[in-house]
Amino acid sequence: MIEVNGLRKRFGPQLALDGMTFKVEPGKVTGFVGPNGAGKSTTMRVVLGLDAADEGTTLVDGQRYRQLRQPLCVLGSLLDASALQPSRTARDHLLWMAHSQGLTGKRVDAVLGQTGLTGVAKRRAGGFSLGMRQRLGIASALLGDPRAVMLDEPFNGMDPEGIVWVRGLLRSLAADGRAVLVSSHLMSELEDVADHVIIVGRGKVIADTSVKDLLTSASGGRVNVRSQDVAAALAALPEGEPTGPSTLTVTGMTAEAVVARLNGHGVPFSEVSAHRASLEDAYMDLTREAVEYRGVSS
């Protein structure tokens, strides 16, 4: 479990964190979403004790990160996949991290296998593509078999196959009961992965909600109707609003109720479907303010 309480941090004139507060629960994949500059990476650096916050605290498994004796065995993290010594091999990179936690080469070989890097373990990390670096970064996050995992933009530079792999990995980590925090500036990357999302903007949390609730609220109980006779359909459904030459949307009714009403009035229709909002839609709604702010400042 990762707890972030009231973080404030100022970089010169700019307020990077403005009361950032949230919890990352075990057994779930929590998406950490917000536009660039919203404070995601800064928050993660503060959690890792790399940056000092002006105010507020962070706890990992109830302890401050700086007090952990084997931190990589409590919280595995990936901040920057390119943070590598180019002339060091992938295996040696993981090996020094293992040694720093009192772990052995066995654990290194295990995570190399888990991330599909066994074949390139003896190659210099400097020659790796961004996708391979992401895998190596994820391997280093998993090295200590930690109870919590925190990944900053792990999908960056990954090919579709890699993205599918990361999604599967994140789900299995959560299924093992780990707390998983994954940041992204693209909500779509977290579709089908995140159980919970924390949406941030301007250094604070805008929404902290389960994905299910977010989708329901974004869908707003709307039903789409497609019919040859829109006028008749509207007559049968005075709540509806036309959305095209042969479509309309009804708010506040279930799809079943809409079908019953249309049948009762003998209105022909070719489709009645409950509207499913994408996470992207919900996210755009929620972050509009932050995006506008960004537009003004840049």
Partner: peptide, 9 residues
Amino acid sequence: RTTFSATPR
């Protein structure tokens, strides 16, 4: 940063 996250002291 990686070094410090492995050894916060």
